[in-house]
């Protein structure tokens, strides 16, 4: 059997790897919170980019240091199912936002609708 048998302890992390992940998470948490709490004026677009960018990096940090996802764990099925889920999430999230954004633009303003109903024969 080619499955690793004695690397389990390393795969579940050590004090060092947990502390590394923790330190990175603290930095990646404090920066966006500081940005919002100090009301630093860098423009809404940049602020959102920093918040979401660092959030995405922190998710990767957690996946690596806390969830210990590797390409070889469970013969690759763990990483494979995670990538599959990520693809589905991108489709659901971007699809929803895109479709509903346009729906709202195409909606008739409420007051016009009331007028239309009033003028019905």
């Amino acid at each position: 059997m080619s499955a690793p048998t004695h690397q389990d302890d390393a795969a579940h992390g050590s004090y060092k790897s947990y502390l590394t992940g923790f330190a990175l998470s603290v930095v990646l948490t404090v920066i966006p919170f500081w940005l919002v709490m100090s009301e630093a004026d860098i423009g809404l677009g940049w602020a959102l980019a920093v918040i979401f960018g660092l959030g995405a990096v922190q998710i990767i940090v957690h996946v690596h240091y806390f969830l210990h996802v590797t390409g070889t764990a469970e013969h690759g099925w763990q990483a494979m199912s995670m990538i599959f889920t990520a693809i589905l999430l991108v489709i659901v999230l971007s699809g929803s936002i895109w479709v509903m954004f346009h729906l709202e633009e195409n909606m008739m303003p409420a007051h016009e609708q009331i007028e239309r109903v009033r003028n019905l024969p």
Partner: peptide, 17 residues
């Protein structure tokens, strides 16, 4: 904890901005 990263970034931090 991973889901909470999404919550505080998307709901709270982006929300108050």
């Amino acid at each position: 904890d991973l889901i909470w990263i999404g919550v505080f970034s998307f709901v709270y931090l982006a929300g108050v901005l």
